[in-house]
Amino acid sequence: MGSTPQAAGKRLLGSELLAWRQQRLREGGRSADLDWLLDLGAGLRWTQLQRVWLDPCAPLRLDAELSELTRLWRLHLESHTPLQYLVGVCPWRQFSLAVSEAVLIPRQETEVLADLAIDLARSMPGRASGPLTWADLGTGSGCLALALAVAVPQARGLAVDCSGPALAQASSNLQRAGVGERVELQLGSWWEPVRHCWGLLDLVVSNPPYIPTAVLAQLDPAVREHEPILALDGGPDGLEAIRNLVSGATAALAPGGWLLLEHHHDQSDAVAELLGSAGLVEVICHHDLEGRRRFAQARRP
């Protein structure tokens, strides 16, 4: 009988791992997801897995027991729970973010939003009255706030969320990255928690809920059954939160300050119209990784 390791960090042969992988895939699921679980859940990087294929007789080590990985994989298949929630980690940009069902799983397209926000922040001249001030409204996991705090360390940051558990998750990620002191956390809805900074915000970025309520039932079960509805449901037309953000922008932004938003792939024209109607200028649309208009920015005159 072949030996099967039962303790984390114990050695096993590559052939044993490949046999285990084949057994799991016979139960269902995608090979890419299982390899992701091996990476984030057991410390086996993709390049290491390729070496296993080339030399299955070579020994290797995992950071988790195969029995635990099997449990997580079956739970993923049975309950549609995203692996990011099961492992508690989501890679995003250069970060390894802690995530739970209190927050959305950061998406790859939101990395583009982070790039746009960083470029805007870096392009702004310094102010005699103090450092550049940015805010992330609806921060969730804190991914955007973290990206800005790391990339623009001299700036003052604020991160807002109406969910206490989400704000705690953001705080944890910021603290783990060593930038917690650069970001002021505020509990509440959209502009209200940063009222003390109205008229001083040079850059406001937000990835608000923008899925129309009727569309929620059509989402993948992994999303609709596990990710927070509060962070998904944008109201009847998906624009409820975006209207709140746009309507408060002229009062809250500093003169010349920018508002930068993520929105649904078919909302670009409607969002641009809202921005223009609110008196904001220089409305610009940006595309996501698939070439769809997904982001909008506009400036207070």
Rank of each mutant, 00 (worst) to 15 (best):
G140I: 06
G257Y: 03
G142V: 01
V87C: 12
L187K: 11
L13E: 15
G9W: 11
H264V: 05
E27R: 08
E16Q: 14
L75N: 12
S247Q: 14
E192N: 11
G257Q: 04
S3H: 14
E240F: 00
L200I: 00
E101C: 09
L72M: 14
H196L: 03
A272F: 07
C57H: 15
S247D: 13
I211L: 10
E262L: 09
G9I: 08
T110P: 05
A145C: 06
P153G: 06
L34D: 11
A155V: 12
L174W: 04
I242W: 01
H264Q: 14
L54R: 12
L185T: 02
H196D: 11
G138K: 01
A7E: 15
T250K: 10
S3R: 13
P221S: 07
A121W: 05
P208N: 13
A151C: 08
W258H: 07
L174H: 00
D237A: 06
S277L: 08
E290I: 02
V152F: 02
S67Y: 00
L104N: 03
D115S: 13
L232T: 14
G43L: 06
S96I: 02
L44A: 03
T133I: 14
E240P: 00
P255W: 07
P165F: 08
T4R: 12
L144R: 00
G235C: 05
S96Q: 15
P208S: 10
E225S: 11
R182A: 15
G88D: 13
V150Y: 00
C57A: 14
D39E: 15
L146M: 08
R24F: 03
M124H: 07
R122E: 13
H287R: 14
A278F: 02
R195M: 06
W73M: 07
Q94Y: 06
A114E: 12
L38E: 09
A249D: 01
A8C: 12
A296E: 07
P165R: 10
G248L: 02
L86H: 03
R122V: 04
V87A: 07
A32H: 12
Q48C: 02
I284H: 10
A98G: 12
G234Q: 10
S15P: 01
V99S: 01
C285F: 01
S96D: 12
R45Q: 14
G234M: 03
A151V: 12
D35L: 15
P106L: 12
Q108G: 00
D63S: 15
P82V: 04
C285M: 10
L203D: 01
L232I: 14
R30L: 14
E65A: 15
Q186L: 11
R71T: 13
L201W: 05
T250S: 13
Q50P: 02
D115C: 07
A135T: 02
Q6N: 09
L259N: 03
R182C: 11
Q218P: 03
G235S: 08
L253T: 01
L289V: 04
L275N: 04
P59G: 08
